[in-house]
Simulated assay, not measured.
Amino acid sequence: MNGFRPRLVFSRPAPTPVAPDQAERFRLLVLPHLDAAYSYARYLARDPAAAEDIVQDAFLRAFRAFASCRGNEKAWLLTIVRNCFLDWTRANRRAPPDIEAETVDGEHPETILQRRQDAEAVRATVEALPEPFREALVLRELEELPYKDIAALTGAPIGTVMSRLARARAMLATMLLAREDEGSAA
């Protein structure tokens, strides 16, 4: 064909290769927080499948931006997870599916059922909290982040974080007691 050779044109530049020592540091410092990232994403999204997508996107972003991490890898990663969740909510707003409780082996079936019901009641109650309160509660109580890190992650002053936590705990207690009263009345 008269010597014409097509030239490949890429819309994006090829990714910058990551140094092997950076990849190893990422694996050692950030990967241990995978469960925390998933848990946080699951509470934010209220959907296990969406949480997986959010965490996958967050880890990809974190890997690419690992050189910008300046200590406290867990808070840094959870900030990325939060940003990915916000991007996800803008892109897909959909109703979450039902969440299945995990089974516990070696226990009486009634105990397992009661534990599942209790866990689902607490999970549903936490998920029913308004987002800023739910987020603060999950970060403090489940992920055990200090107030300072929660404030940095959410962009709220420490006083606001403390107020949100106090209000979230009060709302959670009120809602759980109301559920308990409804259950005993039935």
Results as ranks from 00 to 15, higher is better:
83 N>A: 00
58 A>V: 03
104 V>K: 04
70 R>V: 09
104 V>S: 09
62 A>E: 04
81 V>I: 13
49 A>L: 01
142 L>M: 02
130 P>L: 01
141 E>L: 08
100 E>L: 14
16 T>V: 14
76 W>T: 07
140 R>Q: 08
74 K>C: 13
110 E>P: 15
29 L>E: 15
86 L>R: 06
33 H>K: 06
90 R>I: 04
38 Y>L: 10
70 R>E: 09
23 A>W: 15
59 F>C: 05
138 V>D: 05
63 F>L: 12
76 W>A: 05
78 L>H: 03
35 D>V: 14
116 R>T: 12
27 R>M: 12
53 D>H: 09
34 L>Y: 15
123 R>P: 14
125 T>S: 10
45 A>D: 10
92 N>T: 01
18 V>W: 04
47 D>T: 03
17 P>C: 07
50 A>T: 02
72 N>W: 02
63 F>A: 05
102 E>L: 06
10 F>T: 05
80 I>D: 02
90 R>N: 00
138 V>F: 12
117 Q>H: 14
122 V>A: 01
99 I>R: 00
55 V>C: 08
44 L>A: 06
62 A>Q: 04
96 P>W: 03
45 A>F: 03
23 A>K: 08
48 P>I: 00
53 D>L: 11
12 R>N: 11
57 D>K: 12
104 V>G: 01
73 E>G: 03
95 A>Q: 02
97 P>I: 07
79 T>Y: 06
98 D>H: 11
51 A>P: 15
81 V>R: 01
69 C>V: 07
55 V>D: 05
87 D>M: 02
39 S>W: 13
115 R>H: 02
12 R>G: 02
38 Y>C: 10
86 L>P: 06
61 R>P: 14
45 A>Q: 06
94 R>S: 00
40 Y>T: 07
11 S>A: 02
81 V>H: 04
103 T>K: 14
50 A>P: 15
16 T>E: 14
